[in-house]
Each structure stands twice: as C-alpha cells, then as structure tokens.
Design a protein around this nucleic acid. Structure first.
Lengths: 138, 138
DNA sequence: TCCTTTGTTATATCTATCATATAACAGTCC
DNA sequence: GGACTGTTATATGATAGATATAACAAAGGA
C-alpha cells in the first residue's frame, strides 16, 4: 500500500490520504489498475481538483514498478480528462469533461453489465438498490 | 453479420434471430466480443433457455475465425453459467446462477463505472435514468 | 458397423501487448 | 549549473490472443 499524496510538509491544506495497492497476480494490467485507483480516489474525495500527484519516477519507485508504466497510466488519465501534465508542477488532478458525452459513455459501459444482470434474474429495482449502495459508499 | 440461430428447418418453434458482428479492428479480443454478444442476445430474448447454438466449427466458419476462438468463448460462457455443453446436443443455452453472488459481482463491476460517472458530475438521478433507459431498451 | 458430428485436448507458430531497462531530450526551478 | 519535471526512443523478455493442424472419445444416423 503506497501513499500517493505528497509529504505533509508540501501540503497547503489538511492531511489527505490516497493509498495505491497493486495486485501483481491480477489479470488486469498494472497501468489499468493504477488508472482505476486514481479514478476511485477522485470519486471518493481522497483526491481533489488541483491536487498534485507524485512524479512518474517517485510513484514508480514507491510501488516498485517501472517509470513507463506509471507514465502510461498518467497519459491515459490526461487523455480521458482526469489529469493535466506539465513540466513544472508534474501531474495535477484537473477534471475536464463533456457531461452529455460522459452519460453516453456511461450507458455504453453499463449495457453489458445490465445484460448479464438480467440473465441472472436481477430486477430493475435491485439494480437501482445496488446503484444507491455503491453511491452511498463513495 | 452472422445469423447464429440454426436453419429454420431445424427449429421446432417460430423464427428467432441472433446476429453476431465481430469488429476485427477492436482492441477487445474476439472471444470476449463473442461472449458479450451472446449474453446480450439472451438478455434481449433473442436467445432463450434451451436454445441450441451452432457448433464451434460451424460458427467459426460463418464468422471467419478459428474454431478454438469460438471454443474459448463457449467454455467461458459455460463456466459463468450461461451455456451447457455436451457432445450430443452441442452448445445449449442453460442459465445457472446464484442470485446473491450475481448481485455482488454486479456491484463490483459497477463501482468503477460509477466512480468515473461521479468524476464527470453525473448525479445519482441521472444514473438511475440511464439504468431505466438501458433496461427499457432490452 | 461405418461415418459423421459433437466437444475436448495437445502442439506449434505468429503477432500484439505488457512490463521492463537504459538512455537521452527539453523545459522549469532554485 | 544542477536537480527536477514530462516526454520520446529503442530494445528485451514474458504473456496473451489468434491461428493452424492433428488427434481423441462419445453420441447419433444410415
């Protein structure tokens, strides 16, 4: 478990925590796991708009993986509108999105999941309950 | 577009249609695309419990892919409780599941999707609306 | 009984992706 | 100038995806 936030001495505000855990035995690629955990960190308010992330070299060393693997994750998160990267400040959380486009993408992703849910006899109400429970967990 | 259902002469009941389309330029593996389309076919009632699917060799030839790729998809669908495979009847739709376990899996899959939705400013109500729209589309 | 069809298993090959390693470059800041 | 940032290039080993060929056991039909 790696603390992704900077040292307290470098923070302007209160203490924030963001823990990154990589499963090296997972069938999911490391850079995908990294992307997902940072997205979850933003959704759970462990990371806020404007927060700085560790440099690709620092985070790679902390986790024990290669620099390019972190760089790949950061590049994807930038491309998808979660981060902004520049040479002075490093990687910064910067949310940039088109809401209508995001809803369309959401539907595309949920379609297959809901299809399998229907095959398992899960009702519309039960899906709504699951959504609420996940939402409350954030 | 390949008709996955058997010839009309082999059907006992009315005409059913199940079209399979493979995107060879997709970053998604062919066997994954096949699995997903069959799951969608069941959810949309294009395939029903007890229906026979083409043999691995027939479907592979129709789509223009290798026999083992179809076999891989069928094996996964069997393992996940969508199909039953035997040497006489071939591949048959046979839904077998534990509902509580399915709901737990559903939540796990939706967690990341909802996280990204929250990052995009999508509200709980909007997610519920998306669920309903997808559900109505089935 | 013979032949066909079914899923299944075993090899082997080719390609693409993943993760790694080493190196260098162009800005930025102290 | 030195230390840091992201970025790019190149190379290598490992793994997954898709293909090809071959064979096997079990079931059904002629």
């Amino acid at each position: 478990m790696i603390d992704i936030t900077k040292d307290a001495s470098e923070k302007r505000q209160g203490v924030r925590m963001m823990i990154v855990t990589i499963d090296f035995n997972s069938d999911e690629a490391i850079y995908i796991q990294l992307c997902n955990q940072i997205i979850l960190g933003i959704a759970t308010a462990q990371l806020h708009d404007g927060d700085s992330l560790p440099s690709v070299r620092d985070l790679a060393e902390d986790i024990g993986i290669n620099m390019h693997t972190v760089n790949k994750a950061y590049s994807i998160l930038r491309q998808e509108g979660y981060l902004k990267l520049d040479r002075r400040r490093g990687a910064v959380v910067a949310l940039d999105y088109d809401k209508l486009q995001a809803i369309a993408k959401l539907k595309g992703q949920m379609r297959l999941i809901l299809a399998s849910a229907i095959c398992r006899g899960i009702s519309r109400e039960e899906i709504h309950q699951a959504v609420d429970q996940i939402y409350d967990g954030f």
